[in-house]
Design a protein around this nucleic acid. Structure first.
Lengths: 347, 347
DNA sequence: CTTCTTAAAACAACCGTTTGCCATGCGGTA
DNA sequence: TACCGCATGGCAAACGGTTGTTTTAAGAAG
């Protein structure tokens, strides 16, 4: 009974393996593996053995080697979080989504791995090299991922976006949300309403057009109201505002980013919110509720998106990806949170 | 020559392996492995063979299996990002840090894995199960990690914090930063200055006390100035402000969170910034520069922290963790960015 | 006293790479 | 001609688990 397997890492103990426990218990590796990875009911070993193995394992400080298990079982128990933009460019909206998504998966033993779409194509190795069992994308499916979908045999869910290619996707009712936001203003008597959205010069996301259309539709349906849409940044908004001979009495902002900018412009123009102008924005994130005035907003159900997305992915992970029976697209509603920035139109 | 190894995943092709390429090239697995993982110079194979293997590999769409490589080589090429709080609670300051940290590591082939300190102790399996080659923590080393350091044989760096236990740490000069912020106000003639910091009822982070002390010291050194320190939230600040018979003329905020709150209180009290009161804050993140007025601030060098932290970790990953020669603590300076929220004291 | 059944555990192949060491063969030198 | 060295590449043992297929032995049934 020689003491095999000594030292292979730089310093420290050589890490306890199944073989060590097996030797210690007088069992085979296979039996130890079963004792440790199965519940007592499903385990073909005697209850006494099952318990003893677990006791010894705990005592020896055994930790299953993730790589070995992944290699043998074919599942890495990791999910790739694919992001195209840089992390800091993401909104808090997304962080909350990711957190809940990740927590839901963690309950089932999955870890989240950050995968940036880099130029060197490292992401391909990660995705195609079996490092992850599935993926999640935000906002939109990057073109390269879309192109890689056939090769990539794993499920991909999209959070807060619409996609044909993804295995599943959770989106929000942007059109309806915009309608609701606008109707809120209309109900307060506003008849000249402006919407500010900054596509940043890039091809706008689906949400952009949906919210725009929802806004315009609501205004049009009112019959006697006028709607203006500005695609531009704070400066564009500022210039437009100065040029009005009759300024709008209400502003709808595409996101908290536009809202903060708009508030700044209005303040400089000595416009009181909501006294002179009402403001409503999308996204209930910092600092929307902390500003003076606290902003009325359409809240995106980030947590719900994350949870539903995770559940969708888990189901495909369990059932396997059946091209016939994909979960498809789920749409969630937005909700209006009324705060201080909207009020009746001034007469 | 039978066609072995067919089907093991749900659907799709069985993924190309080294053996496939070897068979195709009439070489051994070992040679193929060498050709693919070494540069042509260090590879003991002929240049012709080296090239042919790579061509065939590319043609067959080969991707190295991360698990197998990790198991065989003993390195997972993954770094664990350990977080104790939930992701959305982190500031943008941290996201920028993480982004640069992650990008720097990615250049060297490392991936980032999210590791939440959960109650079920899953994090232990991840950290001790060889899933990561090293770790990074933010702000402070969670107690459980600190306790697990001896077992965990891998390097751990701390970003934006101070620690004896971590293998290495990058911190910022909070004391000096607070002094600088305060001196900026003193130079503008302010003599009644208030600092607002919200420890949130929890044991404050080292930064909290350092900034507080820096503030108090600067005020005291001025000789003829008065400094007030409030540990509380927006409400506490609001109440305190109402109670003043002679209000301060300047406010230093511990972070952008306090700053947004303070601005709100001041606005409601009809106090003009910077006309009546100057405001300076820490953290140059959204929406600090987008507010009206844009806030003067002490910028935390997030990107630099991320980069230095990654370099520190990479070195230990390369050299191995020598308990004698740890990189230790590196301290980075903060920088003052003057914007619209600070001005000369009103006479 | 066989034989059949079955619970309990052993066996061994395999997952896909890495890597130390050995075999081969060719060219050059003494 | 005999020998040495080197450039190439093959061989096979890890790495640490998982899992389908025996084996073993004990108890029940005939």
């Amino acid at each position: 009974m020689s003491t095999l397997s000594q030292s292979h890492s730089a310093g420290g103990q050589p890490a306890v393996t199944l073989a060590d426990i097996a030797r210690h218990c007088g069992l085979s590796k296979g039996s130890v593996s079963r004792a440790l990875s199965m519940t007592v009911e499903e385990c073909p070993l005697s209850e006494a053995t099952w318990k003893r193995v677990r006791e010894v394992a705990a005592e020896m400080g055994y930790r299953v080697n993730a790589q070995a298990r992944a290699l043998a079982s074919g599942r890495s128990m990791a999910i790739g979080l694919i992001y195209n933009d840089t992390l800091p460019q993401l909104d808090s909206v997304y962080y909350q989504m990711i957190e809940v998504f990740s927590a839901t998966l963690r309950e089932r033993g999955y870890q989240l791995a950050l995968v940036a779409i880099d130029e060197q194509g490292q992401w391909e190795d990660v995705l195609l090299g079996g490092r992850v069992d599935g993926c999640v994308c935000l906002h939109r499916l990057p073109p390269r991922i879309e192109a890689a979908m056939p090769r990539l045999q794993r499920p991909v869910v999209l959070l807060n976006g619409i996609s044909e290619s993804a295995s599943g996707a959770i989106s929000i009712d942007d059109h309806g949300g915009a309608v609701q936001a606008t109707e809120h203003l209309l109900a307060l008597g506003h008849r000249r309403i402006l919407m500010l959205a900054d596509a940043n010069g890039k091809t706008p996301h689906a949400s952009f057009n949906l919210r725009k259309e929802g806004f315009l539709k609501a205004v049009q349906d009112a019959g006697d109201a006028e709607g203006l849409f500005i695609d531009g940044d704070t400066d564009a908004f500022s210039k437009a505002w100065d040029a009005f001979d009759q300024a709008p009495t209400a502003v709808v902002c595409y996101s908290h980013l536009e809202a903060v900018g708009a508030l700044r412009v209005l303040r400089r123009a000595a416009v009181d919110v909501p006294g002179d102008v009402s403001v409503v924005t999308f996204n209930d994130v910092f600092p929307v509720a902390q500003l003076a005035p606290a902003l009325t907003c359409m809240a995106v159900p980030s947590a719900e998106i994350g949870r539903r997305g995770a559940e969708m992915l888990l189901e495909m992970l369990d059932q396997g990806v059946d091209p016939e029976r994909l979960p498809g697209q789920v749409e969630l509603p937005l909700s209006l949170i009324t705060r201080e920035s909207t009020g009746p139109v001034a007469r």
